[in-house]
Design a protein around this nucleic acid. Sequence first.
DNA 1: GAGTGGTCTAGACCACCCC
DNA 2: GGGTGGTCTAGACCACTCT
Lengths: 243, 243
Amino acid sequence: MTILTSPSFRPLYDQIKILLTQSLIAGEWRPGESIPSEIELAQRYKVSQGTVRKAIDALAADNIVVRRQGKGTFVASHAQERSTTRFLRIAPDQDTHEYPVSELVGFERERASGPSQRLLDLRGGASVYVIHRLLKFHHTPAVLDEIHLPSALFKGLDEALLRKHKGSMYGFLESHFGITMIRAEERIKAVLADHHSAQLLKVPEGTPLLCVDRIAFTYGDRPVEWRRGLCVTNSYSYVNEVS
Amino acid sequence: MTILTSPSFRPLYDQIKILLTQSLIAGEWRPGESIPSEIELAQRYKVSQGTVRKAIDALAADNIVVRRQGKGTFVASHAQERSTTRFLRIAPDQDTHEYPVSELVGFERERASGPSQRLLDLRGGASVYVIHRLLKFHHTPAVLDEIHLPSALFKGLDEALLRKHKGSMYGFLESHFGITMIRAEERIKAVLADHHSAQLLKVPEGTPLLCVDRIAFTYGDRPVEWRRGLCVTNSYSYVNEVS
DNA sequence: GAGTGGTCTAGACCACCCC
DNA sequence: GGGTGGTCTAGACCACTCT
């Protein structure tokens, strides 16, 4: 393995990070499985262990991979990961060690409209699945979700399958369709509850709600989900750390 | 420098990170200044350059310090840092390369009330300065801020001083009072504009607004500011990246 | 004990900045 | 040319996990 020379210098560990990412995209190692040891990878790519280490460190910083001392390095998984809360930034104000439970309230297949077509990078005429979902903390509605998924990527998704599944949506999408969410971009606005959402969320019409728009990405920064969540915030908040 | 032995093992680079942080708290190097080179620090602490490097990497990841190849490592500063936007997550929906401008609309000194006392970790009877401020993009109001600062830490702060200053609040606090904000925790809710805020933000009463509560921390995770911002979100959004 | 990731070292060399 | 951070290497040893 030789290093590119300047201009446009690219460090070795960065090139190896890219190679590892390509292997992940190709499905060489599935979520939850371990990747080869640092020593093996060093031999494979003909670099030192330290260089492989730095590449893996970068993947671990991106939450694409998880290191466990004494055991190995594992492909991050939504399935076994107990952290259902990894992408969920809504939390109860009083910490009631309560797990959120979600309930299916609607499922359709439709042609991608303006925003979903644009945000999911779809060509005209493409179809998307739309999932409507109610998230509850301790039987109290908190978030009304509208989840848009390109049907080309999630072939065979249907209502029965969704109802059967317990646990997090991303865990479900990962295990059934082999698509893992890596990161997401969110834009938040304040809106008023309309008649329909007020009824489902069990709040008066006109209640102020958070409107959280999310685009979620897989390996290689491919957008694969667009989601809009309406959140009641009398006893929940969107929490964030900024630095 | 010897390493602690297990149990409760603490790596050398971590201990050095703590020592460096203590020097920052003590003011050995001020914001904007460079810290000693890696080689110098390695000699001072009697460790290898690689170990110092790892400690500095950790500080850089926390945005406490900024590395500049060929020049040195510098204490992060709000003053010269052009990124006024580092802690501001509100952005216009259409990218109008427009810089936000803030306008002072009120200044008082009062006894710390329930939330400010609790959130700022103050003892009963402590006093706080309260700054009311209007943030505008292109002359249009976007955010109404209410900033609470413990007066013990910001002695001599007054209205004239505030009016005189141009630029970011944190830059001002850093240069005048030697207090640098490192990170912040935010909790966001949706609320309705009351009469007073509606007037200042030039929106109808009852308009849905984001209510962003922020606690900001200096070195050593000391809370030193509590802020509540009310944000109009018809053409702005709170943007966030989650992973 | 064997295998994994984690720490620490010492040294060579490269890219970048400024004089 | 000299100083700074950045990359890469090779090797020793430590902490953790499983068998």
